[in-house]
Design a protein around this nucleic acid. Sequence first.
RNA 1: GGGCGUAUAGCUCAGUUGGUUAGAGCAGCUGGCUUACAACCAGCAGGCCGGGGGUUCGAGUCCCUCUGCGCCCACCA
Length: 852
Amino acid sequence: MPTDATDATSAPRIPAKPTIDGVEATWVDAWEDERTYRFDDSAPRERVFSIDTPPPTVSGSLHMGSVFGYVQTDALARYRRMTGWELFYPMGWDDNGLPTERRVQTYFGVRCDPSLPYDPDFQPPDEPGKDDIPISRPNFIALCHQLTAEDELTFEALWRRLGLSVDWTRGYATIDDRSRRASQRMFLRNLSRHEAYSSEAPTLWDVDYQTAVAQAEMEDRERPGAYHRLRFDDLEIETTRPELVAACVALVAHPDDERFSARFGDTVRTPLFGVEVPIVAHELADPEKGTGIAMICTFGDVTDVVWWRELALPTRSIVTRSGRIAETPPPGVPDGPAWQAIAGTTVKAAQRTMVELLTASGDLIGEPRPITHPVKFYERGDRPLEIVTSRQWFIRNGGRDEPLRRELLQRGREVRWHPPYMHVRFDNWVNGLNGDWLVSRQRYFGVPVPVWYPVGRDGEADHGAPIVPEESRLPIDPTTDVPDGYEAAQRGQPGGFTGDPDVMDTWATSSLTPQIACGWEDDPALFAATFPMDLRPQGPEIIRTWLFSTVLRSHFEHHTLPWRDTSINGWILDPDRKKMSKSKGNVITPMPLVEEFGSDAVRYWACNGRPGTDTALDTGIMKIGRRLAIKILNASKFALGRLGDGPAPGVDLVSEPLDRALLAKLAAVVTAATTAFEEFDYARALEGTETFFWSFCDDYVELVKTRAYGGEDDTTPADSARATLALALSVQLRLLAPFLPFVTEEVWRWWQMGSIHRAPWPTGAEFAEHRTGDPSVLEVAADVLAAVRRAKTTEKRSMRSGVAELTVSGPAATLAAVDAARRDIVDAGGVEALELVEAAEFSVVSRLAQPD
RNA sequence: GGGCGUAUAGCUCAGUUGGUUAGAGCAGCUGGCUUACAACCAGCAGGCCGGGGGUUCGAGUCCCUCUGCGCCCACCA
């Protein structure tokens, strides 16, 4: 507990019964009161270490996977702070986008209808009703803000309790004014430099969410399907999508395929519809698949899009944005009975209908052959993506632009990756891009695309000449705001204007977290002091989205990397070694574990996971962390309890060889931990420190225990032990502080001024070179002590029982080391007589005293 | 179909340029209330380092190959 008044010269104030229970609440409050983690914005850039913290998605529930990475980053941050860096360590919230929309819809029972006007008096019902209440986009967004604000408080409380040393005054949310302003400003600059453009083109479309989807948000899922063999006059093709026969525009085979080369240029008629389609050649056609000749539809899959574009084929789209077949057939397709049978039905129903009709007409050959094949899904969606034609906004990303691709690959090489092999994921992604970044979404709770379009005399919007706002007006909502030079009444009128109805992809804003956090254009001084940032910590699964898009936009705007280093954390696996994810239902929430084991113990578990390495959730590791925290309390109680009432002893009192040996070994631990941290390897730093700490407790403290009690005329040996205990404890507490911030702070405040987390990281200079000695003195003494313990255990005697005669044999150097620690060995082992015998081999013989 | 990672004690994991007898914790077993700590302490036992081949005086470590697991990517005929 913190003392009410601290005096540097007074004796340590040690609780009679130290405990780690309740330390979180005490120090969370104290750190807030003392502004321990507050960023000093007067610090020059060369002293600032800035961290581009991942903004968590607040509408999801927290799980241990989140805790894992954030704690590891916090350990790195704490190390940097102690080595003298001024930490710029903000926390943002990712609250824009679909997850929030879904939650608001179900929580309040509303749905967004952008055609409605804003209602300033709208209040959501106490309980969601049977039917969703349609509300305007501004009203809907207000509810999103309201709910995310509540979620964010829950998140912040957990992060604070886990001891994240972020500066909570530097927060942002990806939907707040700053973020929307930055996002819209960057979009407009991309637009002015032709890095952003709009285009009417076939795009992957989620029929449930009613929005376009980017490549980065898609995933393949293995789904059952079936090959249907269909007759096109004398040719046969195989398809998994017979419902798209009406959308067929050609058949395609490989140019070198001799089975079909004579037919290129011919036409055949589609079954049921009788539409004449050409037979064409393209190298993407795979002679091995199906019958070697395939039907091209507009559009069944992304290969169809390639064929359609490169072979300049006509368009016969039949699937609408709602996932149903259109009511009227596309040009050239007869509105006959076949069409009438499928018009307006869902894609699934249309497939059944077509199979029946094709069977009846004899155009379906044999039975459909069941297969399992990968189908593209929106990562949050439940139905396969369709391809529809729509106008969308894109940002160039090198997907169809070789020079830009090379520049971005070069940026990837400039980043320092931790661990280094994560770099290949970046390269794989960039090399696999097959189109520009589709950033527009037909959704509501996001950052609006900040443009309007003039409406011509004919009432049609002119998408080729968007009206852009002055940057000083940002953020804007073009569906409610009016462009300069127009009146509100001209919205949608001939000769007037219309606002772009879309919002941007959530990554279009998240890709700007460095700019948002660092105050780009809003706070030039802060930006100069913090950007480019130093570290981007994140998970491996969003290298293709968050990391890549952040590099891209910084490259366009600043011609630099957004940060120098990136640390990629591993996955959390559940105890059965399955990846933890909500969809699998194996998510474990952190709070119960924090309450059971304590924050330091949970942090210990997280910091045990190697950088980039998948780690199983293991409460056994947390138990060890808890044990370590308690051990720190007790060992500190002992070490500090020996100091007495005098002033804290200095390193110049260290005189005994055993004490100097300890400091020599400790100095090596400091060096190793520092090196590990410099390489972003918190786990190695922890491991070395922890190992040393346990040997410190088990061997060194046991050896000097008696000497440290003092009580002799010559106080030199006792003073040396006390000084060493004090120094070793101070150093070890600081080495452990990044991992166990609560218990180390607790102990630190028993005897030191200020927070341990603002104390200097230990360095070799503290050991005053001449006070360190030969490490073998401690190593040999510990070996002898272990041999004595072994003898007592073998004889099933108490550790307190005496040794009548102890004989140590070995080379002269070993015996000299024993002799240097003679007194401590005798005290710790309860030895009555210690004999040293020179011999080639080291051995220890203990003759135990007779029991009383 | 490509790419990356990974495989070490019953369990969870270390093992940094190749170098004594491969380490730790947990679990197990045997003991001990020892004035810092019984939520503790001491000790013991436990391993063809996934299989096979190669380089080397020497391989858990480097190379090849196979197998299992995880992740990422890929063009749905």
